[in-house]
Design a protein around this nucleic acid. Structure first.
Lengths: 334, 334
DNA sequence: GTGAAAGCGCTAACAG
DNA sequence: CTGTTAGCGCTTTCAC
């Protein structure tokens, strides 16, 4: 069933059918009725590929992420997809893994598939070595590139960011205010966003005149999905450093710290205060429940979709928007 | 830059360009070289829409799920996407929510967008009331429909299932073997898969001559993402029923039960044994770690993709495959 | 308000 | 081995 069949049955030209299909005004009520009746009767739907070829779009946007099972990413995907759908766009989801070349290939693939735009989830898509960002600049030459929680200044690249520096600064200060000064910072990523958090931690200490010490900033090299491994890691470094609080780069690491405390027989928060990041489901599954930073994911996602839709609608949109996180105080802090 | 431009610059016809593009043998090495050089030089890529129109496929498959943030679903999406990508397919991800009409609309949309096939994640897409499954039958009339953990017997519908009945039977027996007989079954869904689990629980009891009692099968009406709410729910029904073990429909509910135990001052597993389902990250975030059922998600996903690729390759594929889960024994059982 | 016809960029059958 | 040409199904200008 094609537009020709419909036009024939309705006794009109294909142009007219196309017009009623696309809601053009230039069709008489009668003709429209007749055409609609045929369409209805035949259960006709226009061929999406032909439409794509003609209009040069299929209303599709690509979502790139390293790992969609990451709790933060999974939430972002969900929020973005639902809102994009409301705006009549569909999502091509791509899980690239953390390898730069794979990311490049995948982004390139999406551009070739002619998505209208692409959203990159997480700052791990931006490298410190700007040569490695060439693939992003290239993509931005073709379609708008939207970044969630990554900062990159370039034409046709738009950033929606939560101020991780400020949030971590605030979280660290919150602990400092309780009188605890020996705070371990535990992280698992060296992305832009991750390093901003680290900076926030450092600034908080520095502002109070507390010297920074390398052994208090621990990088966990494994996967943060392996919770017991995080605890084991802390057990290993236990002789080298003594601390009474940990600020973690995400909730997973914080839970690892809780498991560590339990093994050591330390009570939380009396012996060890802990603050996570992301306000994920993990923060309510433990006991006591985790004090954590809500990084306003819904707001960010809402904004990113709004921006995207605006751009594709040829409106002028801000290239960078920064929101503030919020400390959610629960049981793991004094 | 189109195939015409390339053909012109290479001094050949578009057919020849198309041939080298599609790896046809009928091109001399020289000509191929010349064409490839031009393609390289111009950074030419064929127009995906035109290609789609000609071939009637864009190598896209739709993934439908109610909620991609659900831990089980998130894992499924990830595994399927990665494997599909290896087979040169891309994924249109759709989060429908739990409303039947929305599911219908969304599935219909995908068919109209001409995806090659569609994968439905979770048995909540199949209704007991077969009238509500009409949209699935209709879709199956156009493209292969693959079901993850749902059972539906229909032409062009393929099911990959984990035997939830058996797993839950086994889990329940495991507790019964420790001498505990008053076991609460806690569930949160009435999907096919969920009811199979319930059956497994019931069978285990019945086989041992233990009478079934309605108050021992509790349906939690809220969202299983709200862990504290699960605990509160158990507190509420606490006067009505006394039990020393809970078998839960998923890890979330099990964690809720753990929180409940803590509130009540019951120790796990001495006073209360608990078994979850899915072997999600939640099962290792708690203390003690959760005994749970691994429902072989990776295996199921691998199989579903293999089936899908086979079907689209016109191979004969089994319409239903059933795998067995595995009980992962950890700290919440005796 | 309606129709004819020219693309959109590619694939594939057919002819040579 | 290579070129010609007829679609694929729709949108959109341009006449009438």
């Amino acid at each position: 069933m094609t537009i020709y069949d419909v036009s024939e049955k309705a006794g009109v030209s294909i142009a007219t059918v196309s017009r009623v299909l696309n809601g053009s005004d230039n069709v008489s009520a009668q003709t429209r009725q007749r055409v609609l009746a045929v369409i209805e009767a035949c259960d006709y739907t226009p061929n999406a590929f032909a439409r794509g070829l003609g209009l040069n779009t299929m209303n599709t946007v690509g979502i790139l992420c390293a790992d969609s099972t990451d709790l933060y990413v999974a939430n972002a995907v969900y929020n973005i997809e639902r809102e994009l759908h409301e705006n009549n766009y569909n999502c091509l989801l791509c899980c690239t893994g953390y390898n730069v070349e794979d990311k490049q290939k995948y982004l390139n693939l999406l551009v070739n598939k002619k998505v209208d735009s692409v959203i990159l989830l997480g700052s791990n898509f931006i490298s410190d070595n700007d040569d490695e960002n060439e693939y992003i600049r290239k993509a931005a030459g073709e379609i708008p590139v939207l970044l969630l929680n990554a900062d990159y200044d370039y034409e046709n690249v738009y950033c929606s960011i939560c101020d991780d520096f400020k949030s971590t600064l605030q979280a660290t200060n919150y602990i400092l205010d309780t009188g605890v000064e020996d705070i371990l910072y535990l992280y698992n990523s060296k992305s832009y966003s991750a390093l901003r958090k680290l900076s926030g931690y450092q600034s908080a200490l520095t502002q109070r005149g507390i010297p920074l010490r390398a052994e208090y900033m621990q990088y966990f090299p494994g996967s943060h999905s392996n919770l017991p491994a995080v605890a084991d890691f802390l057990m290993e470094i236990d002789r080298a450093v003594e601390y009474h609080a940990v600020v973690a780069g995400d909730d997973n690491l914080a839970i690892g710290a809780m498991k560590f405390a339990l093994k050591k027989g330390m009570s939380i928060p009396e012996d060890l205060s802990i603050i996570g990041y992301n306000n994920s489901i993990l923060s309510t599954c433990c006991e006591p429940e985790l004090t954590t930073v809500d990084n306003r994911l819904e707001v960010l996602c809402h904004h990113i979709v709004k921006t995207l839709v605006g751009i594709l609608d040829n409106k002028e949109m801000p290239q960078k928007v920064i929101f503030s996180g919020e400390l959610i105080k629960r049981g793991t802090t004094l």
